[in-house]
């Protein structure tokens, strides 16, 4: 009985979490334009989607901004994490709080304040400001995925490398960097995901008709819901899901491998 209750409870949670998305996916293949009726399977909306110039431009923007922002924030965030790691405990904890705050901060506040900053600096809102904003909100995620890897590091590793003849620079590139690389990589993927996913901050910090996918979806939705939006949203969902899986799978696999290895 308790087992049944437990399963029903879990089932309900998953139902409410995933039914909206499932509905979206199903309707993206619906031949009928109506939102209540199933009119048969079709890929028409996906074909239309890739014929739509505005959407293709938005897709290109999203990818270029995403990759740029992810690359820059990964570099800045990883270097920052290494710096944080070497600080004394008190300083580190204080600074970590400051780094984490933007993640919890309301996106609309971040978006508006960035917009104000760019205006104050006389920066024209557009592609550049969009990239800068994305870099800004991605950095904490990179720091957060690199720092645990540094903490797992045996503190004697850099000493061991130097002991064997490596200069501090060689020790970093030959021993530290390869070891924290998984964290840096998952930080990059996480930043990419966040960038592709973002709407609110992008909405406030773009201009001159530069649109990413989420803004395009929003403007399309204002003009009336087209089934193309379902198709586009489905694609975004699948891509983000894939990226998150890529971030988390290596960790999961490592845990399983550890659990199944006989104790030594």
């Amino acid at each position: 009985m308790t087992k049944f209750l437990r399963r029903t409870y879990m089932g309900l949670i998953l139902f409410f979490l995933y039914v909206p998305v499932l509905l979206l996916v199903v309707f993206s293949f619906n031949a009928s334009k109506s939102r209540g009726v199933w009119g048969g399977f079709t890929l028409q909306w996906y074909v239309d989607l890739f014929k739509d110039r505005a959407i293709l431009a938005a897709l290109r923007n999203t990818l270029v901004i995403g990759l740029l922002a992810a690359a820059i924030s990964t570099l800045v965030g990883a270097v920052g994490a290494i710096g944080l790691y070497q600080l004394r405990r008190g300083w580190r904890q204080g600074l970590m709080g400051l780094v984490n705050l933007p993640m919890l901060n309301s996106e609309i506040v971040t978006g508006v304040s960035l917009m104000l900053l760019y205006t104050a600096m006389n920066l024209e809102l557009g592609f550049l400001t969009l990239v800068l904003s994305h870099v800004a909100f991605c950095i904490p995620y990179v720091v957060l995925s690199v720092l645990p890897k540094l903490r797992q590091l045996d503190p004697h590793l850099p000493e061991a490398a130097q002991d064997l003849g490596a200069t501090p620079t060689q020790a970093f590139f030959k021993v530290i960097l390869p070891d924290i690389m998984p964290g840096i990589f998952s930080g990059f993927l996480l930043a990419l995901t966040m960038s592709i996913d973002d709407f609110v901050i992008s909405f406030f910090t773009t201009g001159m008709g530069v649109q990413n996918l989420s803004i395009t979806v929003y403007t399309m939705a204002k003009r009336g819901i087209s089934p193309k939006i379902n198709a586009l949203s489905t694609i975004i969902f699948v891509v983000v899901l894939g990226l998150l899986a890529a971030v988390n799978l290596p960790d999961l696999r490592r845990k399983n491998a550890k659990a199944s290895r006989p104790p030594v």
Binding site: D154, H156, E159, A160, Q162, D163, L164, T167, D179
Partner: peptide, 20 residues
């Protein structure tokens, strides 16, 4: 002299082998 310029090597308490 820094460690990398000394003709001395160390076996660390927890071995400190390079995991990768």
């Amino acid at each position: 002299l820094p460690p990398y310029k000394r003709n001395i090597n160390t076996v660390f308490q927890r071995y400190a082998l390079f995991p990768h």
